[in-house]
Amino acid sequence: MMLRRAELWGGLFWLAIGAFVAWQGWLLELGTLREPGSGFVFFWLGLLIVAFATSIAIGGLRGEGPLLGDLWRGARWRNVLLVVLALIAFGFLFERVGFVICSLALLLFLMTVVDPVRPVISIPVSLIAAVGVWYVLEKMLLVQLPKGTWIEDFIPF
């Protein structure tokens, strides 16, 4: 019965991910606390993931948590499919259309089609989120985001 617990399998999955991240960090060079190497953060983050995942997997071995089948009962598969397709479209159009327009379109799609919210809320939230994240990344953190090949001529930012 414990092998059917969601916590066991989720914990084992994240245990493998954490071990991989820690191993890759180890391969990148740890360095020291005063002069960390490129793998320092990855190594310790991976170990932290391993620790949390181990505690979750142990809970699953003790028989705690829901069964795997219970997790999927009542899932709205149409919404899952729509989100996956929207993210794939976002990935393909990101460089051509640009960050702001793609993010705005994605958020509007999610808030009007996938999980409907009134337009009075969805439009301002989408605009503020897309432009706000763009401003923080592009202007404050100096991360270059794609503007879009067809929009570069029209918008001077």
Rank of each mutant, 00 (worst) to 15 (best):
V83I: 15
L108K: 09
R62C: 01
S122G: 07
W72G: 00
E64L: 07
R76C: 11
C102F: 08
R62G: 00
A75C: 05
A57G: 06
E95W: 02
V117T: 13
E95D: 07
F90N: 12
L85S: 09
G63T: 02
V84L: 15
A105S: 08
A89I: 14
V80D: 00
L87M: 15
I56A: 05
L87E: 09
P119W: 07
V80G: 07
G91C: 12
A57H: 04
P119Q: 14
F92P: 01
G91L: 11
R73T: 11
N79L: 02
G60V: 10
L67A: 12
E95R: 13
V120K: 15
S122K: 13
L61D: 06
V113F: 08
I121E: 05
V120F: 10
E64Q: 06
L71W: 01
V97L: 06
R96Q: 12
G74A: 06
I88C: 15
R78E: 14
L93R: 00
V125L: 10
C102T: 13
M111A: 01
G60A: 14
A75D: 08
I58R: 14
L71G: 08
V83L: 11
I56V: 14
S103P: 09
S122M: 12
L81K: 13
S103E: 06
L106N: 01
P116G: 05
W77T: 09
N79F: 04
L81Y: 11
V100M: 01
P116E: 06
P124N: 15
E95G: 02
A105W: 02
W77R: 08
V120L: 15
A86Y: 12
S55G: 10
L71M: 12
R62I: 00
T112G: 02
E64V: 02
R96A: 09
V83Y: 11
L108P: 11
V120N: 13
W77L: 07
D70P: 00
L85F: 12
A86E: 07
V125E: 05
S55E: 06
L107I: 12
V117M: 12
V83P: 07
R76V: 15
G60P: 15
L110V: 03
F92M: 10
L68C: 09
L85W: 09
F99L: 10
R73E: 09
G74M: 04
I123V: 15
L106A: 00
W72T: 08
A105F: 02
A89G: 14
S122W: 09
